[in-house]
């Protein structure tokens, strides 16, 4: 992995920090939720990713407004659409 999210922050004092690169290393093979800027969620097992936040996922489920819309065995998600990558466990509520 190089470029993009692999960079380190400017200032010092980062020895205890968890940088984006650390996070990306720690979540391979784990269940994740990927949220896109459009609001669509993808839940699945993270196979791999690169510095552009391009993502390969397995057992992917597509949720639109919290409703399951599609399933994909494998899915490639283009990084520019990604809002965040989250480890799972989430609760929803409207207010």
């Amino acid at each position: 992995m190089d470029g993009g999210a692999g960079g380190n922050a400017g200032g010092g004092g980062l020895s205890t920090a968890k940088t984006p690169a650390d996070f990306l290393k720690s979540i391979r093979g784990r269940p994740v939720v990927v949220k896109l800027n459009s609001g669509v969620d993808y839940r699945g097992i993270l196979a791999c990713l690169d510095g552009y936040m391009n993502i390969a996922m397995e057992q992917t489920e597509e949720y639109v407004n919290g409703q399951l819309k599609n399933k994909y065995g494998d899915a490639f998600i283009r990084g520019n659409n990604v809002l965040y990558i989250s480890t799972t466990k989430r609760t929803l509520g409207d207010q």
Partner: peptide, 9 residues
């Protein structure tokens, strides 16, 4: 809509 998340990038 409010969503709670453990850890995110």
């Amino acid at each position: 809509r409010i969503t709670k998340l453990d850890q995110i990038l």
